[in-house]
Amino acid sequence: MVTVRLNVNGVAHEGRCEPRKLLADFIREDLGLTGTHVGCEHGICGACTIMFNGEAARSCIMLAVQADGAELMTVEGLMRDGKLHPLQEAFREHHGLQCGFCTPGMLITALDLLRTNPSPTDREIREGISAVLCRCTGYQGIVNAVRAAAPTLVAGR
């Protein structure tokens, strides 16, 4: 067993786990943050995407020990003062989710896209979110949501 110290959504955590424990499992089981979902465990579907030291990363193909000392943000960290993040609001308004399973990874991925490209074209939005598979929406509601949220995020900076 090894000790992992990390900061998740602004809160310091310390846990002990086997060295082989996946970061996604550590987040879900040891930290109890079940908003991060596991869809493939081979780095394709993107449901497990989290912010890792400020960049989107797949938590299903990282070990928890690799996150020792890291700053993470999961979907649970998006709300501020009990209010939805503008991106969450946009997903709701534009029907950017159906079953909700890919949604946490999709939100984090879209946030990462808008961080690096604050006013993307539709093509760039599609490329940006192509790191996450959604089987329900055909992506149209998601593209609409990301496009709509972009100016709000810029204004909020």
């Binding site: 943050l33 079940t34 908003g35 991060t36 979902h37 999961t74 979907v75 649970e76 998006l78 709300m79 939805l84 969450q88 997903f91 709701r92 989710l97 079953c99 909700g100 399973f101 949604t103 946490p104 939100l107």
Partner: peptide
């Protein structure tokens, strides 16, 4: 139903 899905509070 979106409120819980958007905030990571779904119950799968």
């Amino acid at each position: 139903e979106d409120g819980r899905f958007l905030t990571g509070q779904g119950s799968y």
